[in-house]
């Protein structure tokens, strides 16, 4: 039997390759998300509500928050912020709105995905309430005004005086009928 002395080594190598597959397929995606969430790399901001600030620390300066909207090319939407920019004092809570309209005649489901630039500001930008936490259902040609309540943390680094919040609005391709879970 020639190959039997090899079996131990072959087994180790095969295990290594399977482990690397698991690393790529099972470990990397959640790890990536965790790293992005913690560090705010990639402009990742919170995807679930955070508590409102107690108002005890208010910054002594004003920064600019810019609102940007992007439509995924495949979607028949119009999607716009109500205001383009706001002057914001870190520590205080603000409310603004985005307006989305379904331009098709059929029903559709939309989902907004946020991103913050510069990415080093992402972890200081907190959403208390956001339409991006859930999906929205639209009847044909329906329009919705969707709220965003946020605050910027007072310990935002001094070097940052402008934060850009961008939403990309996607048509999830789902049928509103089947959307019971959101």
């Amino acid at each position: 039997m020639k190959s039997s002395p090899h079996m131990f080594l072959v087994g180790k190598l095969a295990t290594l390759s399977i482990a690397m597959f698991a690393f790529g397929y099972v470990v990397m995606p959640p790890l990536y998300n965790v790293i992005c969430d913690i560090t705010g790399l990639n402009g990742r901001t919170n995807s679930a509500a955070v508590a409102a600030p107690d108002g005890s620390v208010i910054s002594d300066r004003t920064i600019t928050v810019e609102f940007v909207s992007v439509i995924n090319s495949s979607a028949a939407w119009s999607f716009k912020p109500v205001v383009q920019t706001m002057e914001v004092v870190p520590g205080k809570t603000y409310t603004t709105n985005y307006i989305a309209k379904n331009l098709s005649s059929g029903p559709a489901v939309g989902q907004a995905v946020p991103s913050v630039a510069p990415s080093s500001a992402a972890k200081y930008f907190n959403k208390i309430e956001c339409f991006c936490f859930t999906k929205q259902e639209f009847a044909g040609r329906a329009e919705k005004e969707m709220p965003l309540i946020f605050f910027v943390e007072p310990d935002l680094p001094r070097s940052i005086d402008t934060i850009t919040l961008s939403y990309t609005y996607f048509n999830t391709g789902e049928d509103p009928e089947n959307l019971s879970d959101s």
């Binding site: 290594l16 399977i18 690397m20 597959f21 790529g24 397929y25 990397m28």
Partner: peptide
Amino acid sequence: LIAVIPVLAGAVTM
């Protein structure tokens, strides 16, 4: 090869 080809396999499976 043993270390990275499986990672490619994972990526394309996704």
